[in-house]
Design a binder for these strands. Structure first.
Lengths: 244, 244
DNA sequence: GTTAAATGGTCTGAACTCAGACCTTTACCT
DNA sequence: AGGTAAAGGTCTGAGTTCAGACCATTTAAC
């Protein structure tokens, strides 16, 4: 046992305690949830007091975040009983010209997210498929898949896609797994807004989603993992190609 | 698109912004790094200014954390050039009586960590095996494995085990993967302190570690994944048994 | 129509965190 | 021996966040 550490481990293991201020983090998290379609257009967010507790933050801080979201036009707020904060953001269509000027750092981060996703989402799919799913869970899964099939425009499809993946994660009942998938989907969403994807790929994805859905519903972990692996591989290949 | 959210997603997706104060988080992180053997007994931690920057925290806050570690007897500090903070903690032997009185919440968290680990570590192993490993990396891996084989007592073995797993994660070069494995190993370490494991299991693990090492060195992702899966499954079965 | 409940809006003092300058101690170098 | 560099130790003022009480507005319930 040397008196110096292994030297490669510390820098890998010691990580930032927190990147941003609490209210910035709240803004990001809520904005992401809205953009991913966790709170669809027209839906009402939970009361401030509840949200603050969910996020482990004081109401004052949460309200600052809400103000920012209001400012940015994602939500509108009304007072009084039955009031609350309503999502007004229209799902965005990817902007073709956004692909330019992606910093090297961001590019690295995105590539890392793709590799991490390849680990996390297939694992989540397999775990979900290995669960005994009650009727409620099965209905949630079917709903998410139906929404995905039915999604009309590109932005709606994107949100339905996120919700499908998040729903699979939620089926695992594993907080760590859910968080991992959520954070991966958030980055993926960001990438897909910057890098427009053609409709051809959507029908390709649809087949994979269907296979995934069947495998999970049938309780076949290996098949579910395989289906998710293919899906991640194909998406990743596409995005890597467009990232250079 | 309903006007209410899917109801099962928000509570799964909205997560605490941060659980603890910055200085508490620093204490935990450093204590974990020390207990995991990232900084072995007798080694010197980086200078306060460097550590503070690594953790994204002000020096004042970091120093509070250091004071707590000193207080707890994990480290000792000397001033002046060539001084610094030295790890004095002896690796602990699991205490047999600690297994009692584990809160239901903690038990759940531990079980979740085992499931998450089963996703993350095999994925990390496969990814590491798929990398082109240069001589430096191979040497790191071999060193970690040699340490593991050579480890004398139980606590030393435990630290060498952590370092072996963390080293594999570090080989992936994927920040997200490294963080995931680190956090999982931290919880695992906590579990193993509370739930003593018999020497018989160690020789069983040793064979799996050796297989894992060979697979990664040989660049065989599938074999590496399988080896890690078996390893995680066996450890998990053991711990689940002891957790009830 | 009155009342009660649910919701957002506001305020305050305490605690935590930060950035950065400056001080003290010690060892290495010339 | 003297000087300099590298480390920990200290201080200060500003910014952030917190917990909780209280206010204002609107609607649902009766």
């Amino acid at each position: 046992m040397a008196a110096r550490p292994d030297a490669h481990l510390p820098e890998a293991v010691i990580r930032p305690v927190r990147g941003l201020h609490a209210f910035e983090t709240c803004v990001e998290q809520l904005a992401t949830a809205i953009r991913l379609g966790v709170y669809p257009r027209g839906s009402t967010l939970p009361p401030e007091r509840d949200l603050a507790e969910m996020m482990g933050v004081s109401r004052a801080t949460l309200r600052e975040a809400m103000a920012a979201l209001r400012q940015a036009g994602l939500v509108e707020t009304t007072r009084g009983r039955g009031g609350g904060t309503v999502v007004t953001l229209k799902p965005r269509t990817p902007s073709a010209r956004a692909a330019a000027r992606i910093s090297e750092k961001k590019r690295r981060d995105w590539l890392d997210a793709l590799e991490y996703r390849r680990i996390v989402e297939p694992g989540a799919a397999a775990l979900a498929a290995s669960r005994e799913l009650d009727d409620v869970r099965l209905a949630q899964l079917q709903q998410a898949h139906d929404d995905l099939v039915a999604a009309a425009g590109t932005p709606e499809h994107r949100q339905a896609d996120s919700r499908f993946h998040l729903t699979i994660a939620a089926l695992t009942d594993s907080p760590r797994t859910i968080e991992a998938v959520t954070s991966v989907q958030a980055v993926l969403h960001e990438m897909l807004l910057a890098i427009p994807v053609m409709p051809a790929n959507i029908s390709h994805s649809a087949r994979q989603h269907a296979a995934l859905y069947r495998a999970i519903r049938a309780g076949k972990p290996t098949a579910a993992r395989r289906a998710m692996e293919s899906h991640c591989d194909d998406t990743a290949a596409l995005l890597r190609g467009l990232l250079g």
